[in-house]
Design a protein around this nucleic acid. Structure first.
Lengths: 334, 334
DNA sequence: AACGTTACTGGAAACGTTTCCGGAACAAAT
DNA sequence: ATTTGTTCCGGAAACGTTTCCAGTAACGTT
């Protein structure tokens, strides 16, 4: 069943069918009716390959992400996938490992799958101008702060929270409860990732509250992995360093850390207060319930697609959205 | 940069370039060398739309899933996506809501995206023959038991655990610890879903161990949702029904239930023993650590793609794989 | 009555591949 | 010397759309 068959059955030309199917203006009501009748009767769906070839484009939007393993991303992905579908595009997902260069992958993918646009999830900030311009379709970065990039901001869009300020406010919560010996559990500190930016917020908070920085209170792992967090935290606790509160840069890591604290017989929140950032569902069901600053995950996903689709349709400029976080008061603060 | 340009630059015909690119036999070493030199030099990637149109097929494999929100699925999806990519196909993901008919979506998607094959995640068993044959590409169902379907088994493939036996063995664990009053937290019981099958395993266990069934010990919700599990469990606990153990048909639900138990001042495992099925990462970090029967999630994903690709390439028959589960001894049994 | 608009239509080229088919070049067998 | 077969190659049709362009019919204007 091709457009030709439809044309024949409806008694019109191929061009007319095409026009009807694409809502072109220059077509009579009569023709629309005839064509649609046949289309519906035979449940005709145009061939995407032929259509894309004809228009020399596609309806693919690529989504590249590093580490879907962090449950934080699944909510965002869900929202993105949903919204892409609703907008009439097709989502093409590509996962990359931690050591792959996402922009190289993006460039390849763009050629290979003829993308209309790209969404990058959980990436870095220190792309060079050349790297960015090497990819020829509009793209939007999700979930890492705008202000810290070194790029011309009109070359891409971004949708995220203010990671620095959120980290600051997490530490502030601890400070307000009287904590001064605040340890931080983080990932890399120099790769332009969220980890680095949240760490910056932590440091600014310490400074503002006149708490001296102490390298002994920095617990660094090399992933956002829950198991890594658990092991590294356990090792650190063995050192017996004195502290009264722990700021984890992600919920996932906090869950690992809390198990380590439990193993070490530290009671949360009596012995150690804990706060984190993200607001994943699981962390609402830990014992005790984790206190955390929640990201508006669905909203992030939806907005990312919105912005991208607008740009694809030439209905908008690149923009940089910063969405608000909300405090979830759990049971890990005292 | 099209195949014509490559042909011109390499000094051969378009057909020859195509043959080289597709590893056809009838082409000289000399030609291969000349073409590949140009292809590599200009980093040429063939246009997928044109190629698909020419071959009247595509390289798309569809993945349909209900409720990616359950973290259990993310591991599987990750594995599936990875494997699809490695096999040279493109993953096209479609999420559906609980009330959508997955086979209708499958049929639509197949036409729309010209799929080569389909993977269905977390579906039902009671498809009719007509429904199944309405979708014209091979498909494999993941994560629900084979034996309970009412279909001709050579019409599709499946990869999953033995849900009935696993549920049986979960209840067996509780029985071996001396429990007789075993409540069960489940989802639907009559829709052909995993829930129904796991419930069947629970009932068989009771029977084998000479424990009378008791409707009061059945806690039913209408999703696999963690929040729903929490609320429904709380409501049930209010009734004050006597019980000593709880079998949850999924880890996710168990996490909700454990919070409800905590709210009700029931100590796990002293007052109530808990066991579940799935083995998601988060449930390894609950307090206390959940005891559960783990599914080989990565393995399931990889096998599903393996089987499907073999069938697409006419290198295999439809088959039904049942993968083993392993007990993770947590801290919720006594 | 001639002309310009307007509203719509159909023919056909174009998109970038794959693949069928016929043929060239050459070697081996008769 | 002719046939037969092998190996490789190029031309061109085909895939199913979109879209440009030319054209027709109806209608209002001068």
């Amino acid at each position: 069943m091709t457009i030709k068959d439809i044309a024949r059955l409806a008694g019109v030309s191929v061009s007319t069918v095409s026009r009807v199917l694409n809502n072109h203006p220059d077509v009579s009501q009569d023709a629309v009716k005839k064509v649609m009748a046949i289309v519906n009767k035979y449940n005709y769906i145009p061939n995407t390959s032929a259509r894309n070839l004809g228009m020399s484009s596609s309806d693919n939007i690529g989504v590249i992400m590093r580490g879907i393993s962090n449950p934080f991303y699944t909510k965002i992905i869900t929202a993105i996938g949903d919204k892409i579908e609703k907008s009439g595009y097709t989502m093409v997902m590509q996962q990359i490992s931690t050591d792959e260069d996402e922009l190289r992958v993006a460039a390849m993918m763009e050629k290979d799958k003829r993308l209309q646009g790209l969404i990058l999830l959980g990436g870095h900030l220190n792309y060079t101008k050349e790297q960015v311009s090497s990819i020829g379709v509009p793209f939007v970065c999700c979930t890492f702060s705008n202000e810290y990039g070194n790029l011309n901001s009109d070359q891409y869009s971004s949708v995220c929270i203010d990671d620095e300020a959120t980290a600051f406010s997490a530490v502030e919560q601890l400070y307000k409860k009287g904590h001064k010996k605040i340890a931080v559990l983080l990932s890399a500190v120099d790769d332009g990732s969220v980890s680095q930016v949240r760490y910056a917020g932590y440091k600014r908070a310490l400074k503002d509250f006149n708490i001296p920085e102490d390298d002994n209170l920095i617990i660094q792992i090399h992933s956002f992995n829950i198991a890594d967090a658990y092991h590294e935290m356990s090792k650190w606790l063995d050192k017996g360093i004195d502290f009264s509160a722990l700021f984890c840069i992600s919920d996932n890591m906090a869950m690992g850390a809390m198990k380590a604290l439990r193993d070490a017989k530290k009671i949360v929140p009596d012995d150690v207060a804990v706060i984190a950032i993200d607001g994943i569902e699981a962390s609402e069901y830990t014992n005790p319930v984790l206190s955390t600053l929640c990201q508006p995950m669905e909203h992030i996903g939806i907005k990312a697609v919105d912005v991208l689709v607008d740009i694809i349709n030439n209905e908008g400029q690149h923009q940089h959205l910063t969405l608000p976080t909300t405090l979830r008061e759990g049971e890990t603060l005292r």
